[in-house]
Amino acid sequence: MVNPGGQEQTGLWLEAELARQLCPVVAPDALWNRIHEQRRPLRVRRSPAMAWSISALALVLLVGLVWRLGGATGDPNAQLERLAARELRELASGSGTVDIHSGDPEVIQAWVNGNLGVEVRLDDRLLHGNSVVRLLGAGLVRLDKSPVAVVAYRVGDDYAALLVEARRPGTGGAQPRAGVAAEAKVYSWSAGSGEYAMALGGRAQQGQSCLLCHTESTAMLLIP
């Protein structure tokens, strides 16, 4: 190649080398374990380090949230809103609950459906290189022994946590509402067979929250 014998020789060399250098390889043994781990069933989230200090901080923030939301105690979605705010903080601190790492909405939808039996429709635009909103994955936590899916997003320089819970028997759908807790915007609503709460970091812009959820959900359209 330093003294090539012409374009034809270069072409032959290139062809042979591409075939040699791009030859197939054997997948590592660890690959199945990674896949199997992500397909595992419901897992209870373990307590993070410094649980007491975080819990104390969370308590202060959650009291503020409840107060801001107008006395949400007793409201079926209040607990979910509080949990959303907590999961957002953990996500931002790097200790968020993410059991499945994927940027594919279909994978996350199927995962949520498989764990909760709730059909969630995430925005397909996330697949197409949205530079503002990026789907990170999902995890499972418990709220009063009921499983709750936490869908994690990166939104600009901040994060967002979308919580999904199957509607409990005998409860009606909650009215959509919005509030502020500490520096997070918190939304909650009902759609289909699910209850939803979303916490959006304060550094994310207001309009960016619209990109996160169901494009076809009228519930989201009601949220300012």
């Binding site: 997948a27 660890a30 690959l31 990674r34 896949i35 992500q38 397909r39 594919d104 994978v107």
Partner: peptide, 13 residues
């Protein structure tokens, strides 16, 4: 490995 993992998860789903 990340790519392969995501591919097989999509496949199984």
């Amino acid at each position: 490995q990340d790519i392969a993992q995501e591919t097989f998860l999509k496949l199984f789903v």
